[in-house]
Design a binder for these strands. Structure first.
Length: 829
RNA sequence: GCCGAGGUGGCGGAACCGGUAGACGCGAAGGUCUCAAAAACCUUUGCCCUUGCGGGCGUGAGGGUUCGAGUCCCUCCCUCGGCACCA
């Protein structure tokens, strides 16, 4: 492969050559046999991209390169690294683009994928192209449908009517997670509320486990926190407020509260406008007003409703409840600040100790009672605002007066439990996962609706339910999927009674596609099962997962849920899909966010063209800590580029041959230090400092124009290989190796004994200020260092005329004389 | 408002467990080579005072602990990301 006499570094031809060779030799591909027998399997996963028409952007490349560096590092350490990639090609994103350009997604996507594959090959990723996944391929989505059926069979999928987020622009339902501050995540349009029958997966059944397991998985801290927040566990009590109606008793309003200790301060009750008891509680004279308010709320989109700053509106229903603690009659209101989707959809309002209730009470002239007094306050201290801290003693609380908040809460709940007016309860913010989409570009949900039998699963042997090719795939306002217009597709006999029936015409959420794709990768050789038991046992859970924190809650939570459920079904042997997850940072450019509108987006192809993929990869990893991202400065790329040139020139000298002499002693020490640093830092994904260490080392090797020796540069070639695999292969070859550098654990070892220097440069301080440095043998004791320090002219100067009170000695690092002026000693005494 | 990350030279960023702040790179200045330029290579480069030796100041602001603080503690300001009427 090497061309004798060809001594110039020419990245573009060299990279093309090695990419072709990896392909030819199947360097990065596993055969089925290899997957079955790999000795040190390491599943290196990265989040698969959505294949857009624009092609790979720098963000993709940054993430993939960081993940690939990790994979190649592990491989050089001798692991059998499986590094697959695929395409998350279903979903609204593709569909909207198709609608805009008038091209059918089924024609658009394959072209995009071809382009992505070309680009992904070009950046030199270690991808196994024999085990790739395309979520729009019927051979893939038949198993997505199969997955849904497993949930359906076990009662973990159900269709229920629910108020949902409706995006009037995308004309579809959105999951709560896809609504950002009341707006559609994708198009920014204000989201409305609609009541539609939808398929839900019961992720809330797993809330507690999803939360608890967070403690035992090795993930980025920020991601763990985001998940915990999203699940949003709160402990509290459900209290019963009987409706006050002497003539017809029996109705009860259940409220959820985290502060049952404040129940004596509950001066009114608020129901969500959609609450089912509103009709029963409202009195005839108030009914018109109540109805008007409910109507208004219903019409209002969630944007307006979710705005916190707005004034708290609401109306009195005319009805009353009995406060179970005080026995007082309290008025029942409805207000849109109480949400039907959380807790019981009803609250006891404690205006003295809840800011929202306080605002509402103030606006509507409702009584405010203090029931907790902080230090220095008593039962009558006026409340200028709600006192929300759960600290203090109970007041105005009958027999509980004087108890601290925590024991008070316990006592109150215990007593109310005895009379069945309370029970302890844990509530989660997490909602069930709505997977129905009234769109075209997704896998049809494999259900047939039969008048007689209800919803019936499509038999597994009939999967996939193919998405029909239809030209008119636009969604419409009706809230019904485009597939509902394709009569000869949806009209089918019932699989159970053979009677007239109709296919489910909704398709499933993209997040269902990506909730299990990692299970498929190692098993793509099988078309009769989604994932092979034996192979799955060998390769999963995923050893390392690298991706963006934008998926910290959605994708990562859903895939955890899916795996947990599959484990319970006996289909998997583990319940957490990813042993380690690391979130990468974002790339900005010259201090500003990149965006198409600003026109400051980095286009990778021309950069790769000019400098080569190796330089581009190295530079991206050099920008900053991988977990935090970095600032892409156009000029900066010349640094890493120059480094690779110097590396090349060091291994392939322009004149003469590489010296075979033993490594210089000083350089060798530096080499061992460098191997140590780079090895440790790569393990922690601290790529930027690892690269800096290698640069520093190469500078030392070439210092003063000295000629590098083979033993000095060969290990460096191996260390550079994860970042710049092509040049590393070429240099490895030129160093006389026949096999790929990635075959056979070539990561260099370091000898700790050879990392240490003979002498240490020790800082000498006088009163904490550095006045000089001295050289002393490593491990030299205090007296020896002190003697050398005193011999140092500038140190001696600063010690002159002083009295040494104390000496601080940190071996091999520092010596500090703590002194006072001699003249001052006497005075101080 | 809550949660998370962060604030260090002209710029991107280093700094183990509290121990010489500014590694590495960009940019800039000077030089070598060249007819010239590019590339490459060498030197300098936190700020201020000083011919030099050297000295002073310096990690968002203010206080504290310590022989010694970018690092620990308290108060505050700002930036970025996420969540947000969640009872």
């Amino acid at each position: 492969m090497s061309v004798p006499g060809d001594k110039a570094y020419d990245p573009s031809s060299l990279e093309r050559r090695w990419q072709a060779r990896w392909e030819r030799d199947r360097t990065n591909s596993f055969s089925l046999e290899e997957l079955r027998t790999a000795r040190r399997p390491y599943f290196n996963l990265m989040m698969f991209p959505y294949p857009s028409a624009e092609g790979l952007h720098v963000g993709n490349i940054y993430a993939f390169t960081g993940a690939d560096v990790h994979g190649r590092f592990k491989r050089l350490q001798g692991y059998d690294v499986f590094e697959p990639i695929g395409f998350d090609a279903f979903g609204i994103h593709s569909e909207n683009f198709a609608l805009k350009t008038g091209k059918h997604p089924s024609r658009l996507i394959p072209a995009n994928i071809v382009n992505f594959q070309r680009q992904l090959r070009r950046i030199g990723g270690m991808f196994d192209w024999d085990h790739t996944v395309d979520t729009t391929d019927p051979e893939y989505y038949r198993w997505t449908q199969w997955l849904f059926l497993q949930f359906f069979r076990r009662g973990l999928a159900e269709k229920k009517g629910a108020p949902v987020n409706w995006c009037p622009s995308c004309m579809t339902v959105l999951a709560n997670e896809q609504v950002i501050v009341g707006e559609c995540e994708r198009c920014g349009t204000g989201v409305e509320q609609r009541f539609i029958h939808q398929w839900f997966l019961k992720i809330t059944d797993y809330a507690e486990r999803l939360l608890r397991n967070l403690e035992r998985i090795d993930w980025s801290d920020s991601t763990l926190k985001a998940q915990a927040n999203w699940i949003g566990r709160s402990e509290g009590a459900q209290l019963r407020f009987p409706v006050y109606r002497p003539r017809a008793p029996g109705l009860i309003v259940e409220v959820f509260t985290t502060r049952p200790d404040t129940v004596f301060g509950a001066t009114y009750v608020v129901l969500a406008p959609e609450h089912p008891l509103v009709d029963d509680i409202a009195t005839d004279d108030r009914r018109a007003e109540v109805e008007a308010y409910r109507e208004r709320t219903r019409a209002m989109d969630l944007v307006a409703r979710r705005k916190i700053e707005k004034d708290k509106t609401g109306v009195f229903t005319g009805g009353f409840c009995v406060n179970p603690a005080t026995g007082d009659r309290v008025p029942v209101w409805i207000a849109d600040y109480v949400l039907m989707g959380y807790g019981t959809g009803a609250i006891m309002a404690v205006p003295g100790h809840d800011e929202r209730d306080f605002d509402f009470a103030t606006a509507h002239g409702l009584p405010i009672t203090r029931v907790v007094a902080a230090a220095g306050e008593d039962a009558d201290t006026p409340l200028a605002k709600a006192y929300e801290y759960p600290v203090g003693v109970l007041v105005n609380s009958g027999i509980y007066d004087g108890l601290e908040v925590d024991p008070g809460r316990d006592a109150i709940v215990t007593d109310l439990c005895k009379v069945r007016l309370a029970r302890r309860r844990v509530t989660y913010r997490l909602h069930d996962w709505c997977i129905s989409r009234q769109r075209y570009w997704g896998p049809p949900i494999p259900i047939v609706h039969c008048e007689e039998c209800g919803p019936v699963a499509v038999p597994e042997e009939e999967l996939p339910v193919l998405l029909p090719e239809v030209e008119d795939f636009r969604p419409d306002r009706s809230g019904v999927s485009p597939l509902a217009r394709v009569r000869d597709w949806y009209e089918v006999p019932c699989p159970e009674c053979d009677g007239e029936a109709r296919r489910e015409t909704d398709v499933s959420d993209v997040f269902l596609d990506s909730a299990w794709y990692f299970l498929r990768y190692p098993s793509t050789d099988f078309d009769d099962r989604p994932f092979d038991r034996e192979i799955t046992r060998r390769w999963l859970p995923v050893d390392m997962y690298i991706g963006g924190n934008e998926h910290a809650v959605l994708h990562l939570l859903y895939s955890r849920f899916v795996v947990m459920a599959l484990k319970d079904m006996g289909l998997l042997d583990f319940e957490e899909p990813y042993d380690r997850f690391r979130a990468h940072g974002l790339i900005i450019r010259e201090g500003a966010k990149m965006s198409k509108s600003k026109g400051n987006v980095i286009i990778p192809d021309p950069i790769i063209e000019r400098y080569g993929a190796d330089t581009f990869r190295l530079y991206l990893m050099f920008l900053g800590p991988f977990a935090e991202g970095g600032d892409y400065q156009d000029q900066g790329i010349s640094g890493p580029h120059g480094f690779l040139h110097r590396l090349w020139e060091s291994v392939v000298p322009e004149e003469g041959e590489l010296s075979a002499e033993e490594a210089d002693e000083g350089v060798e020490r530096k080499l061992h230090q460098t191997i140590k640093r780079v090895t440790e830092q790569l393990a922690e994904l601290r790529y930027n400092t690892a690269i800096a260490a290698m640069m520093e080392y190469l500078n030392a090797v070439r210092a003063g124009g000295r000629r590098p020796r083979r033993a000095e540069v060969e290990p460096l070639v191996c260390m550079v290989a994860p970042f710049a695999p092509h040049i590393a292969e070429e240099l490895w070859r030129r160093l006389g190796h026949d096999e790929s550098i990635f075959e056979g654990a070539n990561w260099p070892a370091f000898d700790p004994a050879r990392c240490v220097k003979n002498d240490a440069r020790i800082a000498v301080q006088v009163n904490g200020r550095v006045r000089g440095t001295v050289l002393a043998p490593v491990g030299a004791d205090r007296d020896e260092v002190m003697a050398r320090a005193r011999a140092e002219a500038n140190v001696a100067r600063h010690l002159e005329g002083t009295y040494v009170r104390r000496i601080v000695h940190i071996p091999d690092r520092l010596l500090n004389f703590v002194v006072v002026r001699a003249a001052g000693v006497g005075r101080a005494r």
